[in-house]
Design a protein around this nucleic acid. Structure first.
Length: 804
DNA sequence: AGCACGCCGACT
DNA sequence: GTCGGCGTGCTC
């Protein structure tokens, strides 16, 4: 077994297969499958993943592995095979799949350098080049480029005066601190204590500490603990009693936070009934998928917690997935409160280093539970006992970049491999999931009542067209305004929700209707108040804000659509005494600010919390008695077959924020389409009827869950090229599928141009097409050349979430 | 993805 | 005749 099969870090069709390498003698027992190695590949050196070991290779001129990049495998055998499954499912490269399963810190960083060749002194170089190597023998490629003497250096390299060397490095350094430990045993220390000078009282303290504790301790911590200076400890190191070493420490994002420990709560009858099948599934090592369908506030989390408790007692591990949205701090609190430091937390708010550290805790088996966003489904556990996906319907579980996976699918596959259950939890399950539960593919567990039998909040729909007709042109209906005033008086809190997706603030001329569009993309520019600029959210194009209309020179140019900033300004005008906290991407971009703002609100430092998507979930404050949705229908008219579903889910979600405790809650939904079923049924909190209605629509239009969907998006700088390629692909795919499949296209993508590239697509709806995967692969193969050189892009998304 | 190899136009 | 353009094909 002196040969390793390696998947190299080159995301391309031709390299999407193992390459064999000789393992150097001294590394034969070190190199294992799942490890990252640095290997020579062509003229350079790159990172690769060992996927197998063998003693023979078809290839007879094998190169040697340069060096291992890990001490132990970063991908365990489970994950390695999950990675293969993932690349197969999503039609992406193996290397992309592996990298998606690891924290970004482990992605290699490459550096190309120019090194003075051995036996060559700097004065043997051309005179012009000598200053570059004044003090050092290596400069980076970048430095060489900037010096303007790159071509000269390359010539020297060809002559052998200079070597071109490649380096493979990790992105993030492990954080290390000095630690000390005793090199004597406790009894030896006791003996040594007697020989200590009576004046050395501080050294005595240290000796006493190490008699009690044999484990290494961080130097600084010990000094603080014993209230002495580090020089005392260093003195003992000098004497040879103690030894120093570098110890890897973790950046702990929750370091100075105390989580009050909680005990399991007494389950209600309903909860008890719901948890029973889960517990037996855990006990019997049975793979099963449960849909825990419970209204907001019905106590799903306690069911999760107690299921995990059972998993831990069985000596296994648990993964909990929660939606991205900066990972609601309240959720973290509940898990840390119950399981303490057995919990690792992984979410997008952490720095790359912090994410890596949390991941290391899992890898080193220091934790048993991970709570995290989408990618936490790849947590390197080896004895998985349960996977829980909270808010199962959330769109952030689908990754929009390659590999385009859905965490729910991965979770189910992983749980299947590990013979353990999956819990999908939601008050508003996705139609796919609910349909499967109804069919019996998943087991349906219901929690139809709120805990303590609180009433669901009363919901009122306000028709904004009526408001307009009666002369109210502000963004607050009179009913909402009145209730806002009422809450202010009663010192109760309000949450105002702005559905900003879709058209946010764009600029339009009121005289000629001119809308400011991005010159590169077919989409309107968004007005950013703080930078006084117009920005394109797709390509990043920026432009100044016009004071007159570029078309007709009219000065009646206005900002349309309402961003949170604008609502805040309005709010100050109509309710000057109200204290408002605004939460959106602008105010929460700084680390920890999300949590800080929520804490302020919880402590009653504000009357109104104003925000976008991110305040829709997880908020659970007793004093919130009013929820206002300013514009319920902004996402309803998006060109997406899930827009009704999303609107319903969002409205239900937000409404659930009100009246979760003793005080009863009220919800106001402002809309321009009050008769739309998703708004009407959301106001009645009637998921079941919504489900029935939406299912009829989906059946009628042949969408999920009745049909599977795959989407091919082709983009090219030239419109005709994009169209013709899509055309060819469409007819090829059509020819490969059965007559029951529906192949639509070519049609322009909902955003027909991004970054000056025209986008066309082919949509495939099907029930069962065993040939489809192969056909899609063939398409990608066929155009591979043009994709790497001809500026053509083809993206395939199996089960897309948004059809953009 | 890089990078080398290789085959055609404008220059010391 | 050579330098350098970027098309083609390989990387264990």
């Amino acid at each position: 077994m002196n040969i390793a099969s390696v998947i190299v870090d080159v995301p391309a069709k031709q390299t999407d297969r193992p390459f064999d390498y000789l393992i150097p003698e001294h590394l034969i027992d070190v190199i294992k499958p799942g490890m990252r190695v640095s290997v020579p590949f062509g003229p350079r050196k790159i990172q690769g993943f060992v996927v197998g070991l063998k003693s023979e290779s078809q290839f007879n001129k094998l190169k040697k592995i340069s060096e291992p990049l890990d001490l132990s495998p970063v991908l365990n055998p489970d994950l390695l095979s999950l990675g293969n499954w993932l690349s197969e499912q999503t039609l992406s490269y193996k290397i992309s799949a592996y990298q998606a399963m690891l924290p970004a810190a482990l992605k290699a960083k490459y550096e190309k350098k120019l090194k003075l060749a051995r036996d060559i002194a700097k004065d043997q170089l051309l005179e012009e080049l000598q200053p570059l190597y004044e003090k050092i023998d290596t400069i980076t490629w970048e430095e060489a480029k900037q010096s303007g003497m790159l071509s000269m250096l390359q010539k020297e390299a060809a002559k052998g005066q200079i070597d071109i060397v490649y380096e493979v490095k990790d992105r993030v350094k492990k954080k290390k601190l000095k630690s000390v430990h005793s090199i004597m045993s406790a009894s030896e220390l006791e003996h040594y204590r007697k020989s200590l000078s009576p004046q050395a009282s501080k050294q005595l303290k240290v000796i006493n500490y190490f008699i009690e504790n044999q484990q290494p301790i961080i130097l600084r911590e010990l000094a603080n603990l014993l209230n002495i200076s580090t020089s005392v400890i260093k003195e003992l190191v000098k004497k040879g009693v103690l030894a120093e070493q570098n110890m890897e420490v973790y950046r702990d994002p929750f370091e100075d936070r105390d989580f009050a420990r909680t005990q399991p709560l007494q389950l209600t009858d309903e909860q008890g009934k719901a948890i029973a099948p889960i517990l037996s599934s855990i006990e019997e090592w049975r793979h099963e998928v449960f849909l825990l369908y419970g209204v907001t506030g019905s106590g799903k989390t306690e069911v999760y917690l107690q299921s995990i408790q059972n998993v831990l007692e069985a000596g296994k591990e648990a993964i909990v997935l929660v939606p991205e949205i900066s990972l609601t701090p309240q959720m973290v609190k509940r898990f840390k409160g119950r399981f303490g430091d057995q919990v690792a937390v992984m979410h997008s708010g952490l720095s790359a280093g912090e994410k890596y550290d949390e991941w290391r805790k899992i890898q080193r088996k220091e934790v048993k539970v991970v709570v995290g966003a989408r990618s936490a489904v790849f947590a390197p556990f080896e004895n998985l006992g349960i996977v829980i996906i909270d808010e199962e319907h959330e769109t952030s579980y689908k990754q929009e970049e390659n590999p385009k996976y859905h965490a729910r699918d991965v979770a189910i596959e992983r749980a299947f491999q590990n013979n353990c259950p999956v819990i999908l939890g939601s008050a508003t399950p996705s139609l796919e999931t609910f349909a499967r539960a109804k069919k019996g593919v998943y087991q349906l567990l219901s929690l139809p009542k709120r805990m303590n039998n609180q009433e669901m909040p009363a919901v009122e729909i306000i028709d904004m067209r009526e408001e307009l007709r009666s002369g109210n042109r502000s963004m607050f209906s009179s009913a909402l305004l009145e209730k806002l005033k009422d809450r202010l008086e009663k010192k109760e809190q309000t949450v105002l929700f702005l559905n900003k997706r879709g058209h946010s603030s764009f600029v339009m001329c009121r005289d000629c209707g001119f809308v400011m569009n991005c010159p590169n993309c077919d989409i309107s520019l968004t007005y950013h108040r703080y930078s006084q600029q117009m920005k394109c959210h797709y390509c990043g194009h920026e432009a100044g804000v016009p004071s007159v209309c570029p078309e007709c020179q009219s000065e009646h140019i206005r900002y349309f659509g309402t961003g949170t900033q604008k609502v805040e300004e309005e709010l100050v005008k109509v309710l000057p005494e109200a204290r408002v906290i605004r939460m959106d991407v602008d105010t929460t971009s700084r680390k920890g600010s999300h949590e800080k703002l929520l804490d302020q609100f919880e402590e009653g430092q504000a009357d109104i919390l104003l925000g976008t998507q991110m305040i829709a979930k997880g908020l659970d404050f007793p004093n919130i008695t009013l929820v206002g949705v300013l514009s319920a229908d902004t996402m309803l008219h998006l060109p997406d077959f899930r827009s009704s579903e999303k609107t319903f889910q969002l409205l239900t979600q937000v409404s659930g924020r009100a009246g979760r405790h003793e005080l009863p809650g009220e919800v106001i939904i402002q809309t321009y389409s009050p008769e739309h079923y998703s708004i009407e049924l959301a106001s009645l909190q009637d998921f079941d009827r919504f489900y029935e209605h939406e299912m009829t629509m989906r059946k009628l239009h042949k969408y999920t869950p009745f049909y599977y969907i795959s989407l091919i998006t082709v983009s090219h700088e030239q419109l005709m090229k994009a169209v013709s390629v899509t055309e060819t692909i469409t007819s090829y795919v059509r020819s490969k599928l059965t007559s029951s499949a529906i192949v639509l296209g070519p049609v322009a993508s909902p955003i027909p141009r991004i970054n000056n590239r025209y986008r066309y697509q082919c949509l495939i709806k099907y029930k069962r097409e065993p040939e489809l995967n192969q056909a899609l692969k063939t398409v990608l193969d066929q155009y591979q050349q043009e994709m790497s050189s001809g500026g053509l892009q083809i993206a395939v998304d199996v089960n897309p979430f948004i059809l953009m």
